[in-house]
Computed example of a mutant assay.
Amino acid sequence: MQRVVVVGVDRSLRARDAAGWAAGEAVRRSLPLRVVHVTPPGGPEGADGWPHHPEQAVALVAAELTARHPGLAVECRWPTGVAAHVIGAHAAASDLIVLGLRGEGGRAGLALGSTASAVAATARCPVVLVPSRPGDAEPPRRQSRITAAVDARDPAEGALGFAFDSARLHGAWLHTLHAEAGPGGKRERVAYADRSSRKGRLLAHTVRPWQEKYPDVRVWEDVALCGPVTALADASRGTGLLVLGRRAGARGLGPVADAVARRTRCPLAVVPG
């Protein structure tokens, strides 16, 4: 079975941003892109009437993406069901799933939608959550920097592997970041330890096997002396992609990933394992 990149869409501009990001990844990975629009069951006029013809929505997105990426193969799907379940079911054949942080049905002021949260918390493949961009901002381009959250004492190997591979695909620097509040407890401002400190050496030791596996990826390590949410939210302002691991057996996204998803300024990859 051929692998694909899956993107879930609706009629919102947020979904268009996610679709554009997904298309770029599909091109870099030399994979087809599957565009999925899920209609909820029991719509007021049946599947075709809620509240528009869904095949038209996916066809419009597909046309925009193929115009931007002429060599991209795009598949269109418009099933009926519970969005989180339907989209999550595509994980078995997907390199990754891409969603907007929230869809058109999200309440005003809601930073993280229920579908995005549920898929990222349960999918068996990496899930990338793409935040909205200002209306006058340019679409995201090739990433020059990727940031991976690393617990130097117990690293999430799946997330590290995804981060290194993404950095290779993008020709980007990989910023590995371990965050831990110092003796004074949690800080709201980010400060960094010296790289020659004990924690800095531990992080370098943790990352070294991956550097040997990916010798062309340029890496630098940082140890932030604050809580991980503060450190990662701050890092999201200057990076093209944040990568976090999701522990096996974890309930939901987990408090750190959930909080980071609500504050991130860049796409956030949640990687199982």
Rank of each mutant, 00 (worst) to 15 (best):
R218T: 08
A93K: 08
A152L: 08
A181Y: 04
H52V: 15
P32S: 08
P140M: 12
A156C: 14
W21A: 01
V82R: 13
P267M: 09
T264R: 05
A167C: 12
R251M: 10
H170T: 02
A73I: 13
G249E: 03
A248W: 03
L232F: 07
L96Q: 14
L202N: 10
S30M: 03
A63L: 10
A18G: 09
A191F: 07
S94K: 06
Q2K: 05
R124C: 13
L174I: 09
G238I: 02
G88H: 00
E25Q: 14
L13S: 14
D216I: 01
D17W: 01
T176W: 01
L203D: 04
A108F: 11
A121V: 02
D258V: 01
P155D: 11
V130N: 11
V38G: 07
A179M: 04
L72E: 09
A149V: 04
A26V: 04
V270Q: 04
S114T: 15
S196L: 13
R251I: 11
V256Q: 07
V150A: 06
G100L: 02
R189K: 07
M1P: 12
S114H: 15
E221I: 00
G113N: 04
G103Q: 11
G171Q: 11
R189C: 00
L60D: 11
R141S: 15
A250D: 11
G245H: 09
I146M: 10
V243L: 05
H69K: 03
Y214I: 04
P183Q: 05
H90L: 13
Q56E: 14
K186L: 14
E45V: 00
V127S: 03
V5K: 00
G8C: 03
H205R: 14
R145Q: 06
V130K: 02
G24Q: 13
A67S: 14
Y214D: 08
G200W: 08
A26G: 09
G8R: 10
Q211F: 03
L244R: 10
G171M: 08
H85F: 02
R14H: 15
P41M: 13
A57P: 00
A156I: 00
A193L: 15
A152Q: 02
R208L: 12
P44V: 12
L99D: 04
G71T: 07
K199R: 14
A15F: 04
K186A: 11
R3K: 15
D258M: 04
V61E: 01
L232G: 03
D165R: 10
A269E: 11
G46A: 09
D194Q: 12
P126V: 06
H69S: 07
Q2A: 06
E104M: 05
H205E: 15
